[in-house]
Design a protein around this nucleic acid. Structure first.
Lengths: 196, 196, 196, 196
DNA sequence: ATCTAAACGAGACGGTACGTCAGGTCTTGGT
DNA sequence: ACCAAGACCTGACGTACCGTCTCGTTTAGAT
């Protein structure tokens, strides 16, 4: 009897995710508790513990649910334009959802303190975005704009490295200028291999 | 009576810092507590709270004490060689002190959850290293290797962005190949401005 | 349509009562839960809640089911012999069903914490046994062995008071000597009124 | 260093005991929780758990503290008068402290559900009162009113058996008539051995 | 031979209290 | 004045059961 028992309540699941993200954005991830999320969602604590391992997993799920409206991936025919567009869309998504940057910081923080959650964050958040950026390079390679993809990982690390560094350390804004500069630099590095 | 009373015990201070770093490296920063550090150091909790704001400040202090032996800054006359050398020295310092990478991860994590500590980490740890790397570029500029320093911050963000990204997300090793590639790329980017 | 729908499952009822009594005897009434009884009986919790108010009522029912074999009431023609026989039969019933004393203790305990259950216990357990003992005295009165029944309640309180006191407080065994002594004492007290 | 650390707070201890007894008397032992006692006493839960095993031990301690004003033990020179006086004083103590009977019921209930607590209740509450009653009989024996003390335990079981039975089962009041009847009966039983 | 309706098992749900843990504060006596 | 020790209040943890509520399934008598 595989489907026995009362089925999981979709209503409850949504209430919890909405409450979690709302509280994390307004009061700060570190300052909220499972009990608060449960109370805000009108749910019992056990209902949260039944389906999520910890506060971090709830908020990550809420973040993914919220980010369903995916960042648009440009396809302009020019690698430099594609990178600039992708980065700017990514940066801009932070701005459009206030408080979300602080939540992202907290997710990365939590990943440092909990190795299992780090795995979840990488698989569910980090890697999908890496894959998207990589596709811009491979497409450009198919067009002949890029000769050699052996340094692909480093290019991606540079883009996301700077992105996360500025999110985490507050050394500068995620603005259009940064997107353009990084696009110049990465397109140049990728294109350099073509002549070889 | 400015200096009345029993003076601070240097013995106690050292015991606490040693205990904190030892426990953080072996059991993991997130799993240790102030009470545990006090017990391990044979100190009272109050003695820790008297001199440090929280667990994070204790461990950061311990880390600084431990990292007194500064990373050597190369001066080869070539920007690319200088960058490659500096990066490799930095990467290698992680390898030479096992467990320290995990502690660094935790420091960055804590900085996300506590804004005041973030300030301390930036001033006491992040910025000094940024300043060192910047000096390589300004020196090269003085030599005429670099024409324009207006993108200096982005170059530094790229170097440290990739460094921290690989520390925090585990997408690739901090090896000699990475140091060389980044040096190539940054030297090229910096040198490109010269002819313009 | 009074008898529509699926009728109550006798199988389920028996499974639950058996499971309840088995668990109460082996693991101790206080340590078992409704959920455990349901699981042990292969029943759903709702099936228990549909037919019983609480764990105490289930166990009391199980106890009554189990105690169908009633205590034999002697009729020897002598009040003293009747009392001694009745008490000994009562004491011996405890011995014949190991673990049942602990369950009885728990029933009395539960009655202190739940007034409604106390009522059930008195009506279904305490009073029937009081009535039986009283009948010995009234029969003796009819024979002329007892003159005055005005202290009847006190005599019964003495017999059951000592019985329960030794069950609940563990100050002495429920043995034949006790039955004989109590019979002596009560017969003497009851007989004393005759000459007056 | 045997006396290191902050000493136990007498204030806190008293607050907790007072709160526990007040709540048990007014709201009923079964309906109060450790959390409620802590809140009412302005104490932390840990402070309760540090010094008492469970709610039952707290209330028992409170009961003992409250019962410091001991029941007066009569010494009239007559065994019957002594017993009647002692029983009436004991019964009357219930009446003078409203709600205390219900607390006593709960203590006995708890003792059935927790063997370790049963031990504490017997040693700290039951046995001292048995000893007092026994002393009346031994004194009478010294006076020659009682010949043989071999049935002493049964006499005491009868007195306290009836007392507890009426406390626990609500089959009759603890009034002066009961005290007198029991005194008659016990004095007669004890005196009967004298002539032998 | 359906239809209807209650009982059934399973198990998720909103709650309450549990007993534990750690945080940060305080109060001792001792150095 | 500082220190080790340790009790204190606070608040959140993750767990255990409570009693209730859906589900899909089963089982009878009434149609």
């Amino acid at each position: 009897m595989p489907n026995a028992g009362r089925p999981r309540s979709e209503q409850s699941r949504c209430n919890i995710l909405e409450a979690a993200l709302r509280l994390a954005r307004t009061r700060g991830y570190a300052r909220i508790t499972i009990e608060e999320i449960a109370a805000e969602a009108g749910a019992g604590k056990q209902t949260i513990y039944r389906w999520w391992r910890s506060k971090a997993y709830v908020v990550l799920d809420a973040l993914k649910e919220n980010a369903r409206v995916e960042i648009e991936v440009p396809d302009t025919g020019s690698l430099r334009q594609d990178i600039a567009g992708f980065l700017w869309n990514t940066f801009d998504a932070q701005r459009r959802r206030p408080g979300i940057t602080r939540v992202l910081q907290s997710m990365m923080a939590e990943a440092q303190l909990d190795a299992e959650f780090a795995e979840s964050l990488r698989n569910g958040f980090i890697e999908p975005r890496r894959k998207t950026l990589k596709s811009l390079f491979t497409r450009a390679c198919a067009r002949g704009e890029v000769g050699d993809l052996s340094d692909l990982n480093i290019w991606v690390d540079i883009a996301f490295g700077v992105l996360w560094y500025r999110i985490l350390v507050d050394v500068g804004p995620l603005d259009k200028a940064l997107a353009e500069k990084l696009a110049d630099l990465l397109a140049a590095a990728a294109g350099a291999g073509r002549s070889a």
